[in-house]
Design a protein around this nucleic acid. Structure first.
Lengths: 337, 337
DNA sequence: CTGAAAGCGCTTACAG
DNA sequence: CTGAAAGCGCTTACAG
């Protein structure tokens, strides 16, 4: 226990000042790069910081500057599961993005429909929030707007007050995907999608069908498969992988495409040769599929960086120059088409 | 932007005091449940808190009490991936456990082998740390011990200074599993394991073989498969699922058991009828296996609660009553045996 | 049971 | 370029 209770004496800024023979104020200036000191002073101060092992007290700094250097990430527990491939990739990038701007990430997990959502979101005193998986009528941005807490979100909102969003253009993203399929010679199409009311579900469907129409093509209604993952898992073989099947199957997400891919393989069909399969997201999966999946890559890292930067701009009161920003997607061609 | 910049005036404790007609001190006492007030005062104060929308300034409280109410979770980025089924389940439970004790969770992702590990771990000013995936010679506990920062860990360490660990007894956990297999009549065994030097890898192997020996049984060396997930994926069929195969395959983890299960199914073998398969961890997977996997359940929630409680006890200076604690595992019998 | 004073460790004006 | 003073908003002794 001895080592455990080390309790080494706390070094304060005035100890460093004393050691360096300057005032606390000067130490503060050096540490916060405020200018107003000679290079020689700077060196002396830094040497003293090193020697004394000084580490600024965050609470004191926070009290004075009114900045916690904490960014909140709202991550309802349900989204932190191995089934949420995209969420996990996104969370990881947000953590890294926050680290790059020298802040700390605080994770909140209150369910979106909790009656305490407001209180819990406001309690931790973070400088701002990152939200994602935000639907058009999500209650969270409103809570933060009303409380005057800065935030940025990956997604979009209906309310024009809700600004500072970062998103991808789901419909537009389907254009190069469909063009690619048409170019490869595929002419009959199936579509696999979640049966939810998310706007991205809607937009991907509309983007795909519109672009197919542009080519004079369409998705045959009998090859449209909607449902939960479990339902799709069950129905994909009979509906889409029998002898009378489409040449290509467009899936709303990689998670769904993975199911189709696995089931196709199990039926003895080789994706890319016997049937084309496409996904959407292009994030790492539990096992890489073979042949690899053609998909639409969401620039997760860029989104995370943009969202975090947006929060900080808002915190700093830098005029938010945009209501929202679309980031470009990229077609990732694999062996499955 | 108007709504966005709401900037409502900050309510301080003295505003509440004024509203309630008491001193700031009394408001503080009520809010922190320090006794020393009448029930009537209490009600008046709480009403004023409600009316004014007061929310304590965390920085000020932290500066005064020297508690941030922040608990750090060190989660190197590599562990936050869909392949790390167990890590994801554990992180989720830690977040919830921290929330239950009314603290906030800060996530740090510095790689374990980073030269800045010390500095980054100490920078955020958390009250204490939760560590997991800790190996016997892990550098992290030492860093925290030396800095006098409280922590608790899921895992174990060699250094006797490193106390406050919570773990399961991997070897003991294998006893009921092996007994179950023997009881079901299985007499020939294969074993699938990672090729790493983690102590749990070692302990599970020893636990299984020792208990088999107790029954006068053993794992045939030609049915021992060691390697990375990719290697196991490739070799499991030829080594363990051919005509000359063991009756039962014990796997070090659910992740490996999943591979074996999928491959067995692909070979036309029905787990539980044609070959028995067991895992270890019993956390949710991307897709539930069918038949379900017999496995050893790690009490993830209990572990998370215990680790968080241990950190707080340490923070509060409550004597750490134990060097370490083993939590019990439970055999979860599924259809795969 | 309640109040006035002091102080946690910084940084932000303000003087020199 | 550097220093002495004030104050951020709480809570912790200390008096009454």
């Amino acid at each position: 226990m001895t080592a455990r209770r080390a309790q080494r004496p706390v070094v304060r800024i005035r100890d460093v000042a004393q050691d360096a023979g300057v005032s606390p104020q000067t130490v503060s200036n050096v540490l916060n790069d405020q200018g107003r000191f000679t290079e020689e002073t700077r060196a002396r101060v830094l040497a003293s910081v090193e020697r004394t092992g000084y580490r600024p007290n965050r609470a004191a700094r926070q009290l004075r500057t009114r900045r916690s250097r904490l960014i909140g990430l709202h991550l309802p527990a349900a989204q932190l599961s191995v089934s949420n491939t995209f969420s996990i990739a996104f969370v990881r990038e947000v953590i890294e993005a926050v680290r790059r701007v020298d802040h700390q990430l605080v994770v909140l997990t209150t369910p979106v429909d909790s009656p305490d959502l407001d209180a819990e979101l406001l309690a931790p005193g973070v400088d701002g929030y990152v939200l994602f998986n935000v639907g058009l009528d999500d209650p969270r941005p409103r809570v933060l707007v009303d409380a005057g807490v800065p935030y940025a979100l990956f997604g979009r909102a209906l309310d024009p007050d809700i600004q500072g969003w970062i998103d991808i253009d789901n419909a537009a993203a389907m254009t190069p995907l469909v063009d690619h399929l048409v170019e490869r010679g595929y002419r009959t199409f199936g579509y696999v999608t979640y049966d939810d009311d998310a706007y991205w579900t809607q937009e991907r469907w509309e983007g795909a069908t519109a672009r197919l129409a542009h080519h004079g093509l369409a998705i045959d209604p009998r090859w449209l498969l909607r449902g939960t993952e479990a339902e799709i898992r069950e129905n994909v073989a009979p509906v889409l992988l029998g002898p009378d099947r489409p040449e290509a199957i467009i899936c709303e997400s990689d998670a769904l495409a993975e199911i189709v891919h696995v089931m196709a393989t199990r039926q003895g069909l080789l994706p890319g040769r016997d049937v084309a399969i496409t996904g959407f997201d292009a994030v790492p999966m539990r096992f890489e599929l073979e042949p690899s999946l053609t998909s639409v890559a969401i620039p997760v890292r860029e989104v995370a960086d943009a969202v975090v930067r947006q929060v900080l701009d808002e915190v700093d009161g830098a005029a938010a120059p945009t209501a929202g920003t679309f980031l470009p997607t990229r077609l990732a061609v694999g062996g499955s088409t």
